[in-house]
Structures are given as structure tokens and as C-alpha cells.
């Protein structure tokens, strides 16, 4: 009987141990599931905040783009068409030789206006940028600037080209576009250099010019809060897609802007 009761005691203790462990594991699973629900909720909140910021950035880009259209039309296309109109207005009463010259000039000016409108339309068209990819779109922008005749451009690439995510390429292109516009408007440069590096773990794009530059040493480069709105916006947009934005400049020695994006997945450029 003693042996039997000892055996029963042993079995009871063993069962109690097993039940305790089982309860412990069940409690662990329940706590884990509760934490998981909280984790998913927090993740959705962060995603919603990110989507909101992305939308806000896209609207900002659209606003900027409209502003660029307005400026382009006013400064270039408007001027060209005004000249063409002036030529046409002065045609009556002109001698045949002069008239031929004015007609030829007017045709040339109108053709330039049409071409400028086409180019403007293409570079503003998001689908075009997505189809051609970042590299070709930047190449095209540099070609347009070179065609204007006042600024020389050079594009150098290193490594086998690959495509980034659509959103990343679009935002990077708009940043580059804005940099190029700033150079044309303010830098008084004669040369723009663009250097693109395609490394397996990092994408890098650098735009530099030989213009007048400015003294950036006294401004806060950590978050660019001391800089103008345009540069701050570029920095924020770059940060949103995980890109490191660096601007360096010295008075009289031009401006260099570097964009560095760490890569997790890469595609192949067709």
C-alpha cells in the first residue's frame, strides 16, 4: 500500500508539474497574441502617418511643378512667342528681303516654342518619367539644358544600372529637376556635372556646378533648418524615401548636392 501510495504521489506531482508548465505556456501565448495585436495597431498607425506625409509631399511636388510650368511659360515660351508676334506685327510694309528674313525668324521662333512646349510637357509627365526611368529622365533634362546653349552638361555613370522603386525614382527625379532649376536661376554656372553610381548596396547621385555658390558653413546642415524652403523641402522628400541628402557649397566654388540611397532590393534596367 505504501508503495502504491508513493507511486500515486509521484504521478500526482508529475501531473501537477505538467499542468503548471502547460498553463505557463498558454499564458505566454495569450500575452504574445495581445502584444501582437498592439504591434499591428502601432504599425498601421505609422503606415497611415507615412501615407499622409507621402500624399502631402506629392501635393507639394505638384504645386512646385505648376509653379515651374508657370515660370517656364513666362520666362521662355512666352518671350519666344512675344518675339514671334513682334516679327509678324512688323511684317506689313517691309521690303521683300526683310519680309523673308522676318518670316524665317518667326518660323524659327514658333518652332522653338513648339519644341519647348513638347519638352516641358514630357519632363512634367509622371508616366514618362516612370517609363523611361530615373537615369534616362535625368539624361533628357541635361540634354534640354545643353540645347539652350548657355550651360554645358556632363553625365557620368558607374556600375551596372538598375531600377529603383517607382515612388523613389519619381521623387529623386523631381529633386534633381529642382536642383537643376535652381542652378539655372541662381548659380550663374557654365557647367553642370551629374555623377550616378549604381552599387549593389547603395545608389548615389551627385549634382555639382561651377557657379557662384554660397557660404553654407554657417547654416545648420543637420536638418537644413537654416536653409531656404526649397532646400528644406528637398531634404524632407529625400528623407521620406530613406535617402541621405547632403548639400555643400563654398562662396565662389559652386554647389554640390549628393543623394545616397541604401538598397534592399534592386531590379534591372531594361
Amino acid at each position: 500500500m505504501d508503495t502504491l501510495s508513493e507511486k500515486v504521489t509521484l504521478i500526482v506531482i508529475s501531473c501537477a508539474f505538467l499542468i503548471t508548465i502547460a498553463i505557463g505556456i498558454v499564458i505566454l501565448v495569450l500575452i504574445h497574441q495581445k502584444k501582437q495585436i498592439q504591434f499591428v495597431y502601432d504599425k498601421n498607425l505609422i503606415k497611415a502617418a507615412f501615407d499622409k506625409e507621402l500624399l502631402s509631399t506629392q501635393l507639394e511636388i505638384q504645386e512646385q511643378t505648376l509653379k515651374n510650368i508657370s515660370q517656364e511659360i513666362h520666362d521662355n515660351i512666352g518671350q519666344v512667342l512675344s518675339l514671334a508676334k513682334l516679327n509678324i506685327n512688323t511684317m506689313s510694309g517691309a521690303s521683300p528681303v526683310l519680309l523673308e528674313g522676318k518670316i524665317s525668324d518667326s518660323k524659327h521662333l514658333i518652332s522653338k516654342a513648339i519644341q519647348d512646349l513638347r519638352d516641358l510637357s514630357r519632363s512634367l509627365n509622371t508616366d514618362y518619367v516612370i517609363d523611361m526611368g530615373l537615369l534616362r529622365s535625368v539624361e533628357y533634362e541635361l540634354e534640354l539644358i545643353k540645347r539652350a546653349g548657355t550651360i554645358e552638361t556632363a553625365l557620368k555613370t558607374e556600375g551596372k544600372p538598375y531600377r529603383l522603386e517607382q515612388q523613389q525614382e519619381l521623387i529623386l527625379f523631381r529633386i534633381v529637376q529642382e536642383i537643376l532649376h535652381n542652378i539655372i536661376k541662381h548659380a550663374k554656372a557654365t557647367l553642370i556635372d551629374v555623377y550616378v553610381q549604381f552599387e549593389p548596396e547603395r545608389f548615389s547621385l551627385t549634382v555639382s556646378d561651377n557657379g557662384i555658390g554660397f557660404d553654407a558653413s554657417k547654416l545648420d546642415a543637420a536638418d537644413y533648418s537654416g536653409f531656404g524652403l526649397g532646400i528644406r523641402n528637398m531634404h524632407n522628400r529625400a528623407k521620406m524615401i530613406g535617402t541621405d541628402f547632403t548639400l555643400t557649397s563654398t562662396l565662389g566654388k559652386g554647389v554640390t548636392v549628393s543623394l545616397n540611397l541604401p538598397i534592399t532590393n534592386t531590379g534591372k534596367l531594361n
Partner: peptide, 12 residues
């Protein structure tokens, strides 16, 4: 570790 590093994957 399971309780500290929670992710979306079902523990079961």
C-alpha cells in the same frame, strides 16, 4: 525573446 520581439507572425 518571443514576448519582447513581437512580430506579425502567429506564434503557433
Amino acid at each position: 525573446q518571443l514576448l519582447v520581439k513581437v512580430d506579425q507572425k502567429n506564434i503557433l
